[in-house]
Design a protein around this nucleic acid. Structure first.
Length: 924
DNA sequence: GAGTTTGAAACT
DNA sequence: CAGTTTCAAACTC
């Protein structure tokens, strides 16, 4: 039952099963002569209703002829009954089952009673007579009227799930009814239960071209089609028939729950006659064709052709489809398993029109098909009960080529930033071609004033991008102008417009050559390269609160140019209210100070006088930003004098050695690692140099998280614990990643929206969280007093059963005693007890120890925490960038030295950033 | 690995 | 604000 019980009486419930058997029995009983093929679905519906546990209770045989009274019902039962009643009473439609029941009711009541008496221990598996008798037992005090307007659809893990049904008034289903119907079903094909997903009545429109699904020749939008489409997957190669057939469950979505819906429930309360339902037979070639089409990722059943049936294997797998026979009604079926991480867009018919088609496509498919999606209602626009399932519904008239996007009513868009702050962007546009070597011309300034470089973002771009990832990739833009040839690494998300840190080499008239760039930055000579953080900002909502790009590492030669004013480096100023725009240097924008780790603000052992940027931050509500590993100083770090270019290569430093060489030199906040209930590694402020999810190793989860909380990698970093969210889409505070302000990366979550691909949803979720609790993203663990080393849980725990001695308790998990903030019951996590905690606790503590058991200093720990893989990768990319600048003649002689020198610069930047992030008085 | 317990977050 | 539900992590078997 579970989720399915959230459905209301108008929900569509659909099922298909036992049809052949039903036919057989009908024929033998001779009471269904008038049964038309088109009505058979109604029978099945009723049969399906009987599968409900309410009915099952009496299927046991222990209770004969029992009338289900409300008093006997559990809550769920009552609800179902209520729904049955609602639905049934609404529509007294003519149906076969109704006829059946009427026929039965015509039987002599005494005869029925006698048969009841005789029945005894009838086991319910009977010959025809028994079946008839059983059926007769089903005489019900009132009519059973199948609401043929209710199609049954469902989703469930067990075969007894049922989602909606109808019982008319005191409609009572006796066990014999159940058995009879159950017998029929048992004789039939395998049962499939589908869940009807409740769809919020939330209408959005999208600008789109009408979709022609690839590989779907029958989808003629002008045709009077009754199509059901299963968009198997946004990943075509995964959309195989096998995959579909292996689905345990097929989720059939209700088209709409409003009168404008084209679902059968649209007939409710109207004079319209719902179309008869048609069950499919096993012989229809069209179905077979449809099955074939599964391999192309789309499954279509044109149900206007009657008597089509799914192959048994498909039925077995859950591929049940019901469709009206003659009505011009379409429905959309999506397979939840195949929705992957993508959103599903459903394009359904307009209000009151039944000759429209309904289609479901994934967001990525929509994009691939040329839909311009300016705004998408968040994935939770569609919910099952209160549980969002990550599907957006977009309703467009089938005939309308383009419509205007209607913004989510809750979306509050701050005004655009002043022109001086507007980021330069790479606008990813759908286009037909982008091949290696494509020349791109940065357009004139857009209407918004931002420089735009239009890069087609379709499959072609994937082709040129190594790995074909759908995530952000890097494209190298090489200026081909008359000036010095420059190049820029541009993170290209196929679904986003990404603000780009750019230099003056990206002047509006420059033509760029697109070259594929792997993370190894393997191609093309370049004289300059800027590592561009793949930030999460989106141009479609340019003023939304967006993650600030954190410029982590710049190649030293570029830094030198910056210093000399040769190179203008700018960045996207976070358009967060209250954050002051970065000052300018030499008339150019300097690198904006990155947001410091949010948690450091509250958890620094000593609060340093706030720097200007910090002041700005003070005005900010902490936002779950992908946090920087490094904090670029307010001023560009000078090319360090301590690392002059030396003919003698400096001593190679490893990241680890770096961390170990500096212990005790810098204090650093440590409590930030304890801010979440998860005993996750020091919640290392994650770099936004690259979104986490773009750096996936072969088996990242296992690589990154060993499951041992005490595990610390060689570089001193404890791997971040992946989340396992399944229902929250990682957009609620349940998700530790989200709550920590991080993107999910290498997690095990399902339907994760906590990533760049769903930045708008993410920002919306952030906003929602902040509306509920303005301090939602503030660290839970803080100091009791300014300057105090004592950490306390700011909110306190509310444990009741654990005695605050298990990791359920956030205080205990953070290795701090409960405080007055706590409202726990039976707390044993007191100061006194806390002092007695043994060595085992030390191992589980977030404190870090070297191999000798020596406790690393806070500074050292902080250094560890900052040396995330992102930083390391950024460093490596700088080195690669540097190496690519060599002339051939350099490579033999100067290359090693220059690379090492570059490495030194990187380290200096890291150290410098670290230094500036630590209060002065904490460095001693 | 499945099922249960727990408490924070979300919801009503 | 309190009570309930949902959720994901912690825990147990």
């Amino acid at each position: 039952m579970s989720e399915s019980m959230n459905l209301d009486s108008n929900d569509i419930v659909g099922s298909l099963e036992g049809f052949e058997s039903l036919e057989h029995i009908q024929a033998e009983l001779g009471i269904l002569d008038e049964t038309s093929q088109g009505n058979q679905g109604d029978h099945v519906e009723v049969l399906e209703l009987m599968r409900h546990p309410i009915v099952d209770k009496r299927r046991d045989g222990n209770v004969k002829n029992e009338i289900i009274m409300e008093d006997d019902m559990g809550d769920d039962d009552e609800m179902i009954a209520s729904r049955l009643e609602e639905s049934m009473s609404t529509h007294m439609m003519h149906s076969n089952v109704s006829d059946i029941m009427h026929n039965v009711m015509d039987m002599d009541e005494h005869e029925v009673e006698n048969e009841r008496m005789d029945q005894g221990s009838h086991d319910g598996h009977a010959d025809d007579l028994d079946q008839r008798r059983l059926f007769s037992e089903g005489v019900i005090k009132n009519e059973i009227i199948v609401d043929s307007q209710v199609m049954t659809e469902g989703l469930g893990d067990d075969d007894n799930s049922i989602e909606a049904a109808s019982i008319h008034n005191e409609q009572i289903l006796t066990d014999s009814d159940v058995r009879y119907l159950d017998d029929i079903m048992n004789d039939g094909v395998n049962e499939t239960v589908i869940e009807a997903a409740e769809v919020e009545d939330q209408t959005a429109e999208m600008e789109c071209s009408f979709v022609t699904l690839p590989g779907l020749p029958s989808l003629d939008t002008s045709a009077n089609t009754n199509e059901e489409i299963i968009v198997a997957d946004q990943n075509p190669e995964l959309a195989t028939a096998d995959r579909f057939l292996n689905q345990d469950v097929v989720k059939t979505e209700k088209i709409d729950d409003t009168p404008s819906s084209i679902s059968l429930t649209s007939f409710a309360g109207t004079n319209l006659q719902p179309p008869p339902l048609t069950l499919v037979s096993k012989t229809d070639l069209q179905v077979q064709e449809a099955v074939k089409s599964i391999t192309s990722g789309v499954y279509v059943v044109n149900s206007s052709t009657a008597s089509t049936a799914l192959p048994s294997n498909l039925i077995q797998s859950g591929g049940t489809l019901l469709a009206p026979k003659d009505a011009k009604i379409s429905r959309v079926v999506t397979i939840p398993h195949m929705e992957g991480n993508g959103q599903t867009i459903r394009i359904v018919a307009p209000q009151g029109k039944f000759n429209s088609t309904a289609k479901a496509i994934t967001l990525s498919q929509a994009r691939q098909m040329g839909l311009k999606i300016s705004n998408v209602i968040p994935g939770n626009a569609k919910t099952v009960g209160s549980q969002p399932i990550g599907i957006s519904k977009l309703v467009v008239p089938a005939s309308k080529k383009t419509v205007t996007v209607v913004k989510s009513p809750t979306k509050i868009l701050p005004g655009p930033p002043p022109p001086a702050q507007r980021p330069q962007k790479v606008l990813i546009r759908q286009a037909n071609s982008l091949k290696t070597g494509t020349l791109l011309t940065s357009s004139a300034q857009s209407s918004a004033g931002a420089h735009m470089i239009r890069i087609p973002a379709n499959q072609a771009i994937q082709q040129i991008l190594p790995g074909g990832s759908k995530q952000v990739q890097y494209v190298k833009l090489i200026s081909t102008g008359t000036g010095s040839k420059t190049s820029t690494l541009v993170p290209v998300s196929l679904s986003k417009t990404i603000p780009v840190l750019t230099t003056n080499m990206l002047n509006p008239s420059t033509t760029f050559k697109v070259l594929p760039v792997s993370t190894q930055a393997r191609t093309a000579p370049a004289t300059q390269r800027v590592l561009i953080p793949a930030t999460s900002a989106s141009s479609s909502t340019p003023t939304q609160i967006s993650s600030s790009p954190q410029i982590v590492v710049l190649p030293s030669h570029l830094l030198q140019q910056v210093k000399k004013g040769d190179c203008k480096i700018t960045t996207v100023t976070p358009s967060i209210p209250g954050l002051k725009p970065a000052a300018t240097v030499n008339g150019n924008r300097k690198i904006a100070p990155a947001l410091p780790p949010l948690k450091a603000k509250e958890t620094s052992p000593v609060e340093a006088p706030a720097a200007p940027a910090d002041e700005a931050l003070e005005n900010l509500e902490p936002m779950p930003l992908a946090q920087p590993v490094l904090e670029p100083p307010a001023q560009l770090p000078p090319v360090p004098a301590q690392l002059p270019p030396s003919p003698e290569p400096p001593k190679p430093l490893t990241v680890t050695s770096f961390a170990e060489e500096e212990p005790g030199t810098r204090a650093a906040p440590e409590a930030d690692s304890l801010c979440r209930r998860s005993s996750s590694p020091p919640s290392s402020p994650s770099s936004t140099l690259m979104p986490r999810q773009e750096m996936k190793p072969a088996d990242p989860r296992q690589e990154q998280w060993s499951g041992d909380e005490s595990y610390v990698e060689a570089n001193g970093i404890r791997p971040r614990k992946p989340c396992n969210c399944t229902k929250s889409m990682c957009l609620k505070l349940y998700c530790d990643c989200f709550a920590n302000g991080e993107f999910c990366y290498q997690c095990n979550c399902l339907t994760c929206f906590n990533n760049l691909s769903h930045e708008e949803d993410r920002q919306r979720a952030i906003k929602s969280c902040l509306e509920r609790n303005p301090t939602a993203f503030r660290p839970k663990i803080g100091k009791t007093l300014a300057g105090s080393e004592e950490r306390r849980h700011n909110r306190g725990c509310h444990c009741k059963r654990s005695g605050c001695l298990k990791n359920y308790c956030e205080c205990y998990e953070a290795k701090i005693p409960c405080s007055k903030n706590c409202k726990c019951a039976g707390c044993k996590n007191t100061d006194a007890y806390f002092g007695k905690r043994g060595d085992d606790d030390r191992l589980r503590s977030d404190k870090m120890y070297d191999t000798s058991g020596h406790l690393y200093s806070a500074a050292c720990r902080n250094a560890f925490s900052m040396l995330t893989p992102e930083v390391i990768q950024a460093t490596c990319m700088c080195l690669i960038a540097r190496a690519e600048n060599f002339d051939d003649s350099d490579k033999s002689e100067e290359a090693p030295r220059l690379i090492i020198e570059e490495f030194g610069h990187c380290l200096v930047q890291i150290i410098d950033s670290l230094t500036k992030s630590i209060p002065q008085d904490a460095r001693s």
